[in-house]
Amino acid sequence: MKIQLEDILKNGVAEIESADDLKTLDDLRIKYLGKSGALTTILRGMKDVAPEQRREIGSLANSVRENIENALSQKLADLENAKLLADMEKEKVDITEPSKGVKRGALHPLTRFNNKFMEICVEMGFTVIQGPEVETDYYNFEALNVPKNHPARDMQDSFYITDNILMRTQTSNMQIRAMEKMKPPFKVVCPGRVYRNDSDSSHSPIFNQFEALVVDENIGLKDLMMMIKEILKRLYGENIKIRVRPSYFPFTEPSIEIDATCQMCHGKGCNLCKGTGFSEFFAAGVVNPKVLEMSGIDSKKYSGFAFGPGIDRSVMVTNKIPNIKYLFKNDLRFLKQMR
């Protein structure tokens, strides 16, 4: 009997180990542990075993049973695992196939630039404001020290609606609106659309500006320059260089234009910057005291400065946009490049 049990153990474990599917394994379980299985049959014969041997044989039989059960469950786990792996192998995909689902679209490059610029300004303490695009002559010109028939109006051909109402030619109208509403010291910035009746092919009749105005005590041209330097650094990195040129705007005195390292060629010289390595970024100046006074701000106590980047041009340079007309053309082939 002992020998029989040892044979069962030996053969059973060997057979279980060599089983290669669940069905075979189940058959083996029945063959050895089933109601008429080999081990069961032997255990049923225990009554014929001499009592002094019963303990020994019994414990041997139990151990054989345990070993076979262990072998069965081990094998079962192995086979199940193998099946999982086989199933998973079947699920293998070509990972280079295209992705599914709705693809993200994209913001317009102008929005990106505006948002970045606004963020920088807000961090520096500016309040973002918005105002009308259809504007009165007073806010667009007169209050900015450009009386009717002033030659400076030639610089800005306007779309008129009536004698007194026009499409704003500059976001500078918001300087006046801000000064009328807010108490100094304040810093405001206003992104917006402006309109010029300009038939020049390289200019768009509708374009974007970004007006910034600071009114405070004791500020001047140097403070303006420091702020502009900081903005340019945040936009284009520490290495940006600037160059100041004199200019003229009726509402600022002194008036300047600020060039910075051309972002198209990074200062090497290209078509856009006409080989100078610098391209125009900001028009700026110290607010003309006449303008402060007209808007009810005491020019003896307060001074101000204003600046505005050429947004469309900056967007072009930042994104290396080959043609300014792309900005309003909305061709999907262009927009998709902004993803």
Binding site: V122, G125, F186, P191, M226, V244, P246, I256
Partner: peptide, 26 residues
């Protein structure tokens, strides 16, 4: 004007502290 090109100094040397604010609609 080139005196400003390489000028250094405090950003807010002369100006007051103001609190920045986004335009809610934007």
């Amino acid at each position: 004007y080139d005196v400003y090109n390489d000028l250094d100094g405090g950003l807010f040397e002369n100006s007051s502290i103001t609190i920045g604010q986004f335009e809610p609609r934007l």
